[in-house]
Structure formats: C-alpha cells, structure tokens
Computed example of a mutant assay.
Amino acid sequence: MIFYFSGTGNTKWAAEYVSSLTNEKLIFIPDVLEGDCHFNVEVDERIGFCFPVHGWRPPFIVRDFIRRLRIDDAAAHYCYALATCGDDVGLTFEYLNKDLAEIGLQTDSVFSFIMPESYVGFPFMNVDKKEKRDAKKEKGVKELNLLAQDIVVRKKGLCIINKSHWPIINSKVIGSFFVEKMVKDTPFRVEENRCVKCGICADICPVDNIKGGLGIEPEWLHNGLCTTCFACYHHCPHHAIEFGNRTKNKGQYYFHKK
C-alpha cells in the first residue's frame, strides 16, 4: 500500500511508477483524510509514504494523516519513504520517523531524489530554467528506476538521499517560519484581466480548497487545508493567479509525461 501526496505531479508520477512495479494500491492522502484512516494491509505487502518536501519537512497534510493512521500489525511490514525535492531534504525523514513512532512504525529505508523546482512562495525562489529543469527530470528518471528496484527487493538502510550541509537550519529555523507564516491561502489572488474562468485551478487543487468551475472566478476557502503546493498557480493557462507579489513575473511548472 502506497500513501502519497502530490501537488504539481512529481511525486504522483514517482508513486505510480513504484506501484506499477510492486502491484500495490495507491492511496491519495487527501481522499482519505476525513475517514477513520484505518487500513488493512496484506501479509506480505509493503507500506510506502511518498510525498514532496515542503520547507525541508514532510507536508503538514502528510504529518496530520500519519497521526490519524492505524494499520494492524504495522511493524511486521517493510516500510519505506520516498520524497521528491527541488534541492535537498534537510531533516525531513527525521520528522517523518518521529511521527511514525507515535503509531508504532518506523521506516526500514528512505529515498529521495531531485526533481524540478516548483515552490515559488519565497521572494528568492523560482522555477528552474528549461535546461536545468530538463536535466533534473532526466536524472530523476534514472534515480527513480534505481531506488524503485531497492523498494521491490525491500532493501533496508539509508539509501538514496539528498541532504544539505545545513539540515538543522533549513528544517528547524527556515522550516518553522515556513509552516507558521507561509502555509496559508490568504495571499492567493486572481488577476481579473487575465482570468478566463476556466475552472482548472479549482479542479486541480488536491485538497479542494478553491471554490470555482467553468464560468466562475476562483475563490479560496480559507479552510486550513491549503498546503501551498502551488498547483493552482502552475496550472493556470493564463498565469492569472498570484501569491501576493511574490510570484510576479515568475515561471510555472508541473509534471507531465512526454
């Protein structure tokens, strides 16, 4: 069983690939978050967690899900985590295992690999230029092929991981600021002169946080579910969505198969 979260598609692609090799079911976390989060796992089935790195931590929606998660005899199963990141993971897996310990589970192996950058919420952060983006995707495909084989054979231990020289500063200092100040939908706004009311942003939001549809100007619900994954921003065909003034003149990115 593979529990995953994805905003702009990098992690969805990775999770789907692993699922195709292991023949194990994919569970999209937002779809089950409001349920009892109690799952039955087959005797020889793996337990996987796939997610993008947000602020050098697991996304808060993944952490909330894990706190609610209940799996009978979970410790008897091979457990792994796979994270996609634009640069490095910081202490992401340390946070993850701390959360898992609360439900009697720990990862047997952790993996990460770099994919094109999609976070544009900080003034100094933008998507990668085309050459860098394509190089990251090409390398990412190769790394996913390798780590997926390790998952298939249930390899244990620290495997492929991207870690910075300053994991504590990134995850604890900048990460705390990110969670407290940046993970909110209030800065999102619509440039009315560019919006054609196509409804794509509402359809693509992974947590259904946008009221909209064909012929309706989008409106964020401010319900606390926004993960600032920027799927709405990146998928807007007319670049009509902005995050305050921090996304002005920045690029867009979302994963798609060639």
Rank of each mutant, 00 (worst) to 15 (best):
G7W: 00
K142V: 12
C226E: 12
S164K: 09
N245V: 13
A148H: 03
A81R: 01
R68Y: 06
W220R: 05
V179S: 04
R63L: 09
D128S: 10
E34V: 08
N10P: 01
V190C: 04
F122N: 13
V53S: 14
P206S: 14
R194T: 06
R63E: 13
N193V: 03
T11P: 03
L146P: 00
P52N: 13
L105A: 06
S118F: 01
A148G: 07
C232L: 09
T22K: 01
S6T: 08
C50H: 00
A76I: 06
D64A: 15
Y253P: 03
E45L: 15
G140D: 10
K142A: 15
G157A: 13
G35P: 01
K139M: 04
I151T: 13
V120N: 07
S19C: 12
D73T: 14
K136T: 02
D203V: 07
V141R: 06
L100C: 04
T8M: 02
T22C: 00
G175Q: 11
K258S: 14
K98V: 02
R194H: 03
D44G: 08
K130Y: 02
T247P: 02
L214V: 14
M115H: 00
I241R: 03
I29F: 11
P30N: 14
S6D: 10
V18I: 12
F51C: 11
F51K: 04
T8S: 02
I204Q: 14
F124Y: 15
W166P: 11
P218D: 04
V196A: 03
V41Q: 05
E217F: 10
C50F: 05
K156S: 15
D73Y: 09
Y4C: 15
G35Y: 03
I168Y: 08
H165Y: 12
R154V: 10
F49C: 03
S164V: 12
I114C: 05
F243P: 05
L21F: 11
K184E: 01
P30G: 06
I241P: 01
P237G: 00
P30K: 13
I160E: 04
G157E: 10
V110F: 02
M125E: 03
W220A: 09
V120C: 08
A135V: 00
R194E: 05
S118A: 07
H238C: 08
H238A: 14
H234A: 09
E143T: 04
I174R: 15
G86R: 01
S118H: 04
S6N: 08
N145A: 12
F51H: 05
I200W: 01
K136F: 00
K258T: 10
L33P: 00
A135K: 12
V179I: 09
D134M: 07
G86Y: 02
W13D: 04
D185F: 00
V190N: 04
Y78D: 15
E143N: 11
S109K: 02
H54N: 04
D108W: 01
V18W: 05
S171I: 08
K129C: 02
Q252S: 10
G35L: 00
R194L: 08
L82F: 09
M1Y: 01
L96K: 07
E217Q: 15
Y80K: 07
L147I: 12
P58H: 11
F49Q: 07
W166K: 09
F243K: 02
I151C: 15
K25N: 13
K156Q: 15
P58R: 11
A14L: 05
V43M: 10
G86C: 10
P167K: 07
I2H: 00
V127A: 06
V173C: 03
E94M: 15
I216E: 06
D108K: 05
N223E: 04
R189K: 11
D64F: 06
